[in-house]
Lab assay of single mutants.
Amino acid sequence: EVTIKANLIFANGSTQTAEFKGTFEKATSEAYAYADTLKKDNGEYTVDVADKGYTLNAKFAG
């Protein structure tokens, strides 16, 4: 089991951190699915991958 950390950075400057656990593939998929649920209210996002894929920095356009 691994933990994927998602740093969510919103256009207004606020941030949120979420963690997803499971296999690498499952946890990564859940992190992206969570970011997708936030698109409606926060706009499209881009992701910078860090820490060999164990940290995802998602920046929302607003």
Rank of each mutant, 00 (worst) to 15 (best):
F24A: 05
N57G: 02
A6S: 05
D36Q: 06
Y34E: 02
K5R: 14
V49N: 04
V49I: 13
N42E: 12
A11V: 09
D41S: 12
F20H: 02
A6E: 03
V49W: 15
I9V: 11
T37A: 14
K40D: 10
T23P: 10
K40W: 11
K26G: 12
A58R: 00
I4L: 05
F10K: 03
A35R: 00
N7V: 15
L56W: 07
G13M: 06
T17D: 05
N42D: 04
T15Y: 12
Y34C: 07
D48M: 11
N57V: 11
T37C: 14
K52F: 15
T28Y: 12
V2D: 03
T55D: 05
N42R: 10
D41P: 05
A18R: 15
D51A: 00
T55H: 05
Y32V: 07
F20C: 03
A18I: 15
K52M: 13
A6L: 15
D48C: 15
I9L: 10
A50C: 13
A61N: 12
T3W: 06
T37I: 10
K21D: 04
K26M: 13
L56S: 04
T37M: 14
Y45D: 01
N57K: 05
A58G: 04
Y34M: 06
L38C: 09
K21L: 08
A50E: 13
A33Q: 10
L38E: 04
A11P: 14
D51P: 00
G53T: 00
A27W: 02
D51T: 00
Q16P: 01
T3Q: 05
T23G: 06
A31W: 05
A31I: 07
I9R: 08
L56C: 05
K40V: 12
G43N: 02
A11W: 09
A58P: 01
E19I: 14
A50P: 04
G13C: 10
T55S: 05
T17E: 09
A33V: 06
G13Y: 04
T23W: 05
G13S: 05
D48T: 15
Y45C: 03
V2C: 10
K40P: 12
A27V: 03
T15E: 08
K39E: 06
K39F: 08
E19M: 12
I4N: 01
V47K: 03
A61L: 13
S29F: 13
I9Y: 12
T37G: 13
Y54M: 11
V47E: 00
F24G: 01
N7R: 10
D36V: 02
K21A: 07
G13H: 06
K5W: 08
T46G: 04
K40C: 13
K40F: 10
D51G: 02
T3E: 04
G62S: 08
A27L: 00
A6P: 00
I9F: 13
N42V: 05
G13Q: 06
V2W: 02
G62P: 07
D36K: 02
Y34I: 03
Y34Q: 02
F60W: 05
T15D: 03
Y32I: 12
I4P: 00
D48R: 09
Y34F: 12
D41W: 12
Y45L: 05
F60K: 00
K21N: 09
A31C: 05
K26V: 12
F10M: 07
T23R: 06
S29W: 11
E30G: 05
K59F: 15
K21G: 06
I4S: 00
S14H: 14
G62L: 06
A61W: 13
A11K: 09
Y32D: 01
A18V: 15
N7T: 09
G62R: 06
K52D: 15
K5D: 01
A18Y: 14
T28R: 09
N57M: 06
A35K: 00
K21S: 11
F24D: 02
S14N: 12
V49S: 09
K59Y: 15
D51W: 00
K26Q: 14
A18K: 15
N57I: 14
G53R: 00
K40E: 11
T17N: 07
Y45R: 03
Y45V: 05
G53S: 04
N7Q: 08
S29L: 14
F24H: 06
A31K: 00
A33K: 11
N57Q: 06
Y45I: 04
N12S: 08
T46W: 10
D41V: 12
A33M: 10
E19H: 12
A31L: 08
E1D: 11
Q16M: 14
S29R: 14
Q16W: 11
A58Y: 15
E25Y: 07
T37V: 10
Q16A: 12
D36W: 00
I9N: 06
D36M: 03
Y32T: 05
A18L: 15
E44Y: 09
D51Y: 00
D48K: 09
F10G: 02
A31Q: 00
L56G: 04
K26C: 12
T28W: 15
E1I: 15
E25Q: 10
T55C: 07
T15P: 04
E1T: 12
L38S: 04
A35V: 15
N42H: 15
G22T: 01
G53F: 01
T46P: 01
G22R: 00
Y32N: 03
D51Q: 01
S29I: 13
V2L: 06
L8G: 03
A33N: 09
E44H: 10
E30H: 07
A61H: 13
